[in-house]
Nucleic acid binder design. Structure first.
Lengths: 141, 141, 141, 141
DNA sequence: GTGGTCTAGACCACC
DNA sequence: GTGGTCTAGACCACG
């Protein structure tokens, strides 16, 4: 099974974290439905061109969040998450990203109008590029 | 001299990075004007309750960005930055944060309306709380 | 033939182990008497909704413990176990579980009184719920 | 710094899990107080004669439970846990172990009197051996 | 000095 | 075949 995940080798963001973010998004947005059998850690590692350990960690982390369920000898599945909890996850990730953005704007003394105009500009740009996957900026240094 | 910087010990974001982001914001937003003498490394470290190494790194990084200038035996000053470059810095940080936010939204299949509504909600909330400093979400793990 | 066994898919405890523990309990407590013919491997696997391999392992393990006996082409029977050996099995499982419990209590510095009070509370609760099957806590991670 | 942890090489219980259980017990029982700096992962690995990865995992798991806090470049500390939450953790571990024990007893048809007598016997035995550390029984096979 | 990530591979347990 | 544990070691980032 093929999972659409894009890694950015350039980014300082850890591999496992990039995968987690995207896989979590696929689940909470309903693109991967409850009960779906994910690729085995070995398969997935091959697809992502990374170590099995990295995949293992992703599966483990998401399992501890309750988004995945894994049974030894069987495989790893998308867990049954309540619709409400799924929505909570979904909203939270977006809200938190916007909070960071608005705070960044306020730190440099943008007024409401300026923030709105930047938001519109970015939104328009992204929507035009459609679902084209984009390269993330390296975070830290 | 007192520099308004808030560190969040809980966050996984490195200390030096938190300081850099906030200090950069103070400079490019004009809250720290050209020529201003910053606290000595030791003083600043004391204020922030962190290691001098951390402060030294911040000063070095911002100096290499051209935002600070260090005079041996005198101290570290806010550099003279062209208005255009200042604006570039200022815009860039905000735009990049909004790009991340919009991408996060698109990853979980938000449509344009939903993104707008979340943006408005967050913006309103933040504006109401004024410049009250808020706790950042940990970035990575 | 119907064997009352409850599997907990959520638990990290291996399937075969859950089955073994419960089947062993049924035998040494006399609820399955000597000579009883157990379901065929396929039947049992169907009932438990698990793999035949799992059931085969259970039968093998319990046979090597002397609790079951397999006749080629006939099926698997509850073996004749001496009353003393049956009692030994029966006691051992309970004692070992209580040893683990008491050790857990002592590790977190419970004194004798506290241990007793917790024991009473749990015992009372379980007795009230009768023989209602309950969900097991995952052991490891 | 020395942390009293006993590993049982014989047990089928994973190393990391043995360490987790005991370290968790030390924290929630108040034997390691808030703010205590734990040994570095390298030091601890040396003490336990295991890989640094194993220690890392322990620290990470307990951090995600909120019992530890770790800062890169600084070390790993016992987190500030509310007294109530600490007590909850403490009780839960003991209660859960006793539930397993009582269920094991009920599965083999012990009556109330028999359960009590076994409990007393085990408790007395363990108390006599005092705080002498004891070897755990291998769990599964 | 610290912790954080990742590799390549081994061996075991489960289904 | 699957996942689970563990090793030994590398390299980077933080203070």
């Amino acid at each position: 099974m093929w999972i659409p995940i894009q890694l950015n080798e350039q980014s300082a963001e850890p591999l496992y974290h990039q995968v987690e973010v995207q896989l979590r998004a696929l689940i909470v947005s309903g693109q991967l439905t409850e009960g779906t059998l994910l690729p085995s850690i070995r398969e997935f590692a091959q697809q992502l061109k990374c170590s099995v350990i990295t995949v293992r960690r992703v599966y483990q982390d998401l399992e501890s969040e309750g988004l995945l369920r894994t049974r030894q000898g069987t495989g790893t599945f998308v867990a049954s998450v309540g619709a409400d909890e799924r929505d909570r996850h979904r909203l939270e990730s977006v809200i938190s990203a916007f909070e960071i953005a608005v705070e960044a704007a306020m730190r440099v003394q943008c007024d409401e109008g300026e923030i709105e105009s930047i938001f519109r500009r970015v939104l328009k740009e992204k929507l035009e590029r459609g679902s084209r996957s984009s390269v993330r900026n390296p975070e830290h240094k």
